[in-house]
Design a protein around this nucleic acid. Structure first.
Lengths: 417, 417
DNA sequence: TCACTTCGTTGGGTGGTTCATCAAAGTAAG
DNA sequence: CTTACTTTGATGAACCACCCAACGAAGTGA
């Protein structure tokens, strides 16, 4: 379906590709002189100069001093311009809305968290709140004199990224919500620069771009919270599947005799490793750690405290979850052979008590020793991975096609901030 | 590792991309006039004419009469030239070597099967045999006056496609065999036009190009024989994983209490659905169907006969295998969300007795109804899928970069048939 | 026979990259 | 302090690929 009709290559596309190449080189290698860029990219010096001057006029890059020492004329360094082109990442979750603004260098311009009972509020009023948050982010971008490349929303559920529709988000109790349309209309932002994606997919993107698995092209990111989701990156490209629902690992049935799950099956992975299960195993029903009014972060602080204190029941529960995590990961590693697995969400918070158990299970279950080399890493971005990935995603459009960024007159900057 | 340094885009690359675009358009839509090609591809008429004339000089396309009826001047049809550019696919398996030559239109120029006890022969002498087979194919290509685009070998095991090395093929008992080097040296064929890949990956490519799931970009191909392998295609691109070992689904552990497997675990999928298991369940040890001297095709004929005759034990065994097949497929569908699953190898031969059981399991285990829409199809290429995929793979290099094909003088053809 | 339609080619124009050359801006040595 | 050397980045000519507009070619239908 929607067969990707590849547009013909023309000179504009050629230019676009090379502009993007320079931006990418700068992203991967940090600030460089034009001569170094020429060597790294394979483009001629003349072309690099030309490209850089266009990127400068679009404020994607800027001058950054001179190269140090050595012989000959010093090079004029160029770097990705901070604070000029920004991406906006939003996240909808059970307990909050979250937002961030990143610039091309990956610097956080601003971050915000709005506690919210999303389920009780319902999709439409939640969208209103989300729009307000987006407007606030746009205002910040405008205040620092930057240009908003796009807005990307992370949602815990099945998303049709092409249509911009949330198909099914069980935890939020959402079905068929036209999120992109709704948001763009409310915020008065160009529709084509708004996007939705699954939170785990975006988390994977963030970990790939600037997180734990920075630069790793084949990546699996497992995010644990009230459910479990996975984001896949193969050769640097997100794997979404035919309808965009790839990575729905929560309901993998790992044990035909395991406990039953609301989804109708038995032994679902999610029922073995999500936060709710950990709580059930490690505590009695009246334990304060299970107080429903507690926020996730507070709950995790308690769990960490008990684990650090060596509480046996807690440690046993963590082992049980770690084992189950490893069993499922072994399966995914066999199928996908990633170079790294990043544990996100609550798994990252409890990484040190989970990973060894998981590793043992993986080692004994993976077919080839080479595949077993997959590194199991904790997310360095924690709960902000999804919004950062969203912001990165929003900027990716511009990095892949720098001509989208507007040309400014001539004056370098005169931001009042 | 081996971070893909993207070469800069230049005019030659632009030309290459548009030549490839014309070839692809022709592949997808069949013979077309220049004007129709222009409309379909988005290129201008002038450019299409120019490109077609270059493709003609490289014998990738040829004139094919005029468009029928309608008003105005009739168009001059162009089609992928049959019998001029060929791909050679080879396959190594337990019981035989297999080879085929395909042309751009997908027509089989020749096919050959050499029975061989690969395990007993050992890798080096097997390579000698393989080289002889390859030389025979090259001779056929030369005899019809065609140009061999490349040779690709399908191997049942873990393959490092970049290095051209078979890392581990348990069934063949091969480890670290430099297959591409060995073959290219023996055959005296350019190294860079030789390749190895996993048989399931190539089968998936074949099913995508011209088989059961023709044109489906997100595809999963499960090949059953003495083991079980999977080939993955995401957005039309093979998913190989970080070290090229993705798709090793045979040893997914689906049941922690299941029967033990030589790999050291329990409940491996392979032990539930491979041909050996089916035989064990459907017959007693002294049953003639289990005669070790029987070829796979003969064995399958017997099984089909019993199933058609309504033999209860056989049908029960097929149900058991079909159920297990469905359980594993549900898992893969949740993770990968393919548009289609193609059953290859022996699954295709027994498709009609397996698929309904599998479908029931899948339907009850897949999370989203949209993902459940994945079509479960029988391979239409059967045991030739891998070699056809190999030949397609060999031609893909040229289709993606038509300038690789040599330019011929002027005379159209003078093949002595 | 004469409009009318559609096809494919031709020539001029635009845009992008490359090569060769050169001035600029440093270091190193006499 | 001057001179030689090295490296950088900019300039202009050349090349190449694509697009547009116009035109002749080759049919259909009245």
């Amino acid at each position: 379906m929607r067969n990707g009709h590849v547009p013909p290559a023309d000179q504009a596309g050629l230019r676009r590709a090379n502009l993007a190449l320079v931006v990418r080189t700068l992203r991967e290698h940090g600030q460089q002189s034009r001569a170094q860029l020429s060597a790294l990219s394979g483009l001629s010096k003349a072309t690099v100069s030309n490209l850089v001057s266009e990127l400068e006029s679009r404020r994607l890059v800027r001058a950054a001093g001179l190269t140090a020492g050595r012989q000959g004329r010093p090079g004029q360094l160029v770097e990705l311009s901070p604070g000029s082109v920004c991406g906006i990442g939003l996240e909808i979750n059970l307990e909050y809305l979250r937002a961030t603004v990143l610039d091309l260098a990956g610097t956080v311009i601003t971050e915000q968290l709005v506690p919210l009972r999303v389920v009780e509020l319902g999709p439409q009023r939640c969208l209103d709140q989300l729009a307000e948050l987006a407007r606030s982010m746009l205002a910040t971008v405008a205040a620092v004199g930057a240009w908003p490349a796009g807005i990307t929303v992370a949602v815990p559920g099945l998303v049709d990224t092409q249509a911009g529709v949330v198909r099914f988000a069980p935890n939020l109790r959402w079905r068929q919500i036209a999120l992109v349309d709704g948001l763009a209309a409310r915020v008065d932002f160009p529709l084509e620069r708004c996007a939705v994606d699954n939170d785990a997919n975006l988390a994977a993107l963030a970990e790939h771009t600037s997180g734990a698995a920075s630069g790793t092209a084949d990546l699996l990111c497992i995010v644990g919270s009230s459910g479990v989701g996975a984001g896949l990156l193969a050769a640097g490209v997100p794997v979404r599947g035919a309808s965009g629902f790839a990575g729905e690992v929560g309901h993998l049935s790992l044990d035909p005799l395991g406990p039953s799950c609301p989804c109708g099956n038995r032994g679902c992975w999610e029922r073995q490793i999500d936060l709710g299960t950990l709580l059930e195993v490690m505590s009695s029903p009246d334990d304060p750690v299970r107080d429903p009014s507690l926020a996730v972060s507070d709950r995790l602080r308690i769990i960490r405290g008990r684990a650090e204190a060596g509480d046996r029941r807690t440690l046993d529960a963590l082992q049980q979850v770690g084992d189950a995590l490893g069993v499922g990961l072994a399966l995914l590693i066999n199928v996908l052979n990633p170079a790294a697995v990043v544990l996100g969400g609550y798994f990252a918070e409890l990484y040190e008590w989970l990973v060894e158990h998981a590793r043992i299970q993986i080692a004994s279950r993976v077919l080839s020793p080479e595949a077993a080399r997959a590194a199991i890493l904790p997310s360095t971005l924690g709960f902000t991975a999804a919004i950062r990935g969203g912001a990165q995603h929003a900027m990716r459009t511009v990095m892949d096609n720098p001509t989208l960024a507007p040309v400014v007159a001539s004056e370098p900057t005169e931001a009042p901030a």
